[in-house]
C-alpha cells in the first residue's frame, strides 16, 4: 500500500516537473514541425495564399490548394536539389573526418602530462572559434580569402608569386568554405574528445604504457573505447549542423560561383524565401530531417559502444 502511494506521489511530482518542458517542446519544436509537414502537402506559394483565421484558435488556415505528394515528387525530379544534396554530402565527408582527426590530435596533445599553463591557455583559446558568431566567421572568411586584399593571398604571393581567386573559382571556393568550417568546429571536437580522454582510468593508461611505447596501440586498445561515445556525439551534432550550415557560406559566396558552394540549406532557403515556394521548401526540409535522423541512427548503431 505504502509502495503504491509513494509511486503515485513520485508520478505526480514528475508530471508537474516535466509538464512545462514538454509544453515548451510541443510549442517550439513539435508544432512547427507538424505545420511544416502540413505545408509540404500543399501548393503554398506565399504571395498567393491568404490567411483565413485559426482552427480552434491554434491551427492557422490558409487557402493553399492540397497537392498531396506532388512537392515530394518534384524535388526528387529536380536536378538542382539532387546536386545540392550531393554537394552537401561531399562537404560532409571531407570536413567531418578532418575535424575529427585534427580534434583528436589536439585532444591527445592536451592529454599529455606537462606544460600545464600552456594547456590552460590552449583550452581557453579553443573556445574562441566556437564562440564566434557565424556571420562574423563568414566575414572573416570573405576578408581572408579576398583575392586582392586577403591575408592568405598576401602570404601566398610571397611564396608562389601568384594570387589565386579563392572565392571566384568553383573548386577553390568549395575548399575555402571547407577551411572555415574546419577552423570553427575542430576545437569543438578537440574539447569533446579531450573530456572523453579524461574518463580513461589513470591506472589502466599507465599499465598500458608499461606494456608498450607505441602511442597508437594505447589509443586503439585503451583510449578508443572511452572516446566512442564522444565521437558518436560529434558525428551526430556535426552532421546535423552541416546539413543546416547557412550563414558562413551565404556571407562568403552566396552559394556561388554558379552553384559550386550551394549547400542544401542555401538551396532550401532560396526556394523558401526567394521564390517563396513554402510548400516545396517544407518538403525539402522534411526530407533533410529524415536524412539527419537516419544518419544519427546509423552512427549510434555502428559507432557507439557501451564501455
Amino acid at each position: 500500500m505504502s509502495v503504491d502511494k509513494s509511486k503515485r506521489t513520485y508520478s505526480t511530482g514528475a508530471f508537474f516537473f516535466l509538464a512545462p518542458a514538454v509544453a515548451v517542446l510541443l510549442a517550439v519544436g513539435i508544432f512547427p514541425l507538424i505545420f511544416a509537414v502540413g505545408v509540404s502537402f500543399h501548393q503554398f506559394l506565399l504571395p498567393k495564399v491568404h490567411w483565413h483565421g485559426n482552427f480552434l484558435g491554434v491551427w492557422p488556415i490558409y487557402d493553399a490548394p492540397l497537392s498531396w505528394f506532388q512537392n515530394y515528387i518534384s524535388i526528387f525530379q529536380d536536378d538542382s536539389f539532387r546536386d545540392a544534396l550531393s554537394r552537401t554530402f561531399l562537404f560532409l565527408i571531407i570536413v567531418l573526418p578532418c575535424e575529427l582527426v585534427l580534434g583528436l590530435a589536439i585532444a591527445l596533445l592536451l592529454h599529455k602530462p606537462g606544460n600545464e599553463l600552456l594547456k590552460k591557455i590552449c583550452r581557453v583559446a579553443l573556445v574562441i572559434p566556437m564562440a564566434t558568431t557565424f556571420a562574423v566567421v563568414g566575414l572573416m572568411g570573405r576578408l581572408m580569402f579576398d583575392a586582392n586584399y586577403g591575408i592568405l593571398n598576401y602570404l601566398w604571393s610571397l611564396i608562389f608569386r601568384s594570387r589565386p581567386n579563392w572565392l571566384a573559382d568553383p573548386n577553390l571556393a568549395f575548399f575555402s568554405i571547407s577551411i572555415m568550417e574546419v577552423w570553427q568546429w575542430t576545437p569543438f571536437c578537440a574539447l569533446v574528445l579531450f573530456s572523453s580522454l579524461t574518463m580513461v582510468p589513470l591506472e589502466i593508461e599507465e599499465a598500458a604504457k608499461l606494456e608498450t611505447a607505441k602511442w597508437w596501440q594505447i589509443l586503439w586498445r585503451v583510449q578508443l573505447p572511452f572516446l566512442l561515445p564522444g565521437i558518436t556525439a560529434i558525428l551526430i551534432l556535426r552532421t546535423a549542423d552541416i546539413l543546416k550550415l547557412f550563414d558562413v557560406v551565404y556571407i562568403m559566396t552566396k552559394g556561388g560561383p554558379g552553384s559550386a558552394t550551394e549547400l542544401i540549406s542555401l538551396f532550401v532557403q532560396r526556394i523558401g524565401f526567394r521564390a517563396f515556394d513554402q510548400g516545396i521548401a517544407s518538403a525539402q526540409a522534411i526530407v533533410l530531417l529524415i536524412i539527419a535522423t537516419l544518419l544519427s541512427r546509423f552512427y549510434i548503431k555502428f559507432v557507439y559502444k557501451e564501455i
Binding site: 571566384a168 573559382d169 568553383p170 552559394g255 556561388g256 560561383p257 554558379g258 552553384s259 559550386a260 550551394e262
Partner: peptide
Amino acid sequence: EWGTKMMDGQ
C-alpha cells in the same frame, strides 16, 4: 545561377 556558371566556364 546559370549566368555565373557561363562566366566561369562551368
